[in-house]
């Protein structure tokens, strides 16, 4: 029961923050993908950089539970391509459909229903697809720590890499808003 309250509270806080960033607005998401608005992508990568450092801190005091997902070269890559087409077309990802539907956006309600259909379809085909697409190229739960040999170095590399991405996105994306206001 505690878990349900924690989940509900976490979801409300998460949904609130992403709405305030405009991430539930498919129009703003499309502009982000078109490199016309840098704020959502750099908000995302900076949040990852900060979370990685914070999680390292939590783990060092023995708090939190982690479970990195395995990497399957074929399945993870193919899944990302399918996902990317849907994300580019609709401007919604699984989490934002719930927040946007709650906000009252009707197109997000349809994205949510389509999502239920997609999840049901995959669940139905799971036994057929996983052995063919996922298992043969499954490299296991590999992390940057395996690559760098030391967790603190890996966290520093990730935070630096994602921090640079946030900065680079700000440089590469156009700043229509700024130009208009000046």
């Amino acid at each position: 029961m505690t878990n349900i309250w924690l989940g509900l509270f976490s979801g409300i806080a998460f949904g609130f923050v992403i709405q305030r960033m405009g991430a539930t607005d498919a129009h703003r998401m499309a502009r982000s993908h078109l490199m016309l608005d840098a704020d959502i992508p750099r908000f995302m990568v900076l949040a990852v950089a900060l979370s990685a450092v914070g999680l390292f801190g939590l783990q060092s005091v023995g708090v939190g539970r982690i479970l990195p997902l395995p990497t399957s070269i074929v399945a993870t890559g193919l899944a990302a391509v399918i996902f990317g087409i849907g994300w580019g077309l609709t401007g919604y990802c699984p989490g934002t459909t719930w927040a946007a539907a709650g906000e009252g956006r009707l197109d997000a309600v349809f994205a949510l229903l389509g999502g239920l259909a997609g999840a049901a379809l995959f669940a139905h085909l799971h036994e057929m697809l996983i052995p063919v697409l996922y298992d043969p190229t499954n490299a296991g739960r590999i992390t940057l720590t395996d690559l760098f040999g030391h967790q603190a170095v890996a966290v520093a590399a990730l935070a630096l890499g994602f921090g640079l991405c946030a900065w680079g996105i700000g440089k590469l994306w156009r700043h229509d808003n700024v130009e208009k206001n000046n």
Binding site: F83, G84, G86, P94, G115
Partner: peptide, 18 residues
């Protein structure tokens, strides 16, 4: 958006997350 929602969830479930 229905079709796109189908794609993003099919992809997410194949990869194991979104």
């Amino acid at each position: 958006t229905f079709f796109g929602g189908l794609l993003i969830l099919f992809g997410s479930r194949l990869a194991g997350g979104c």
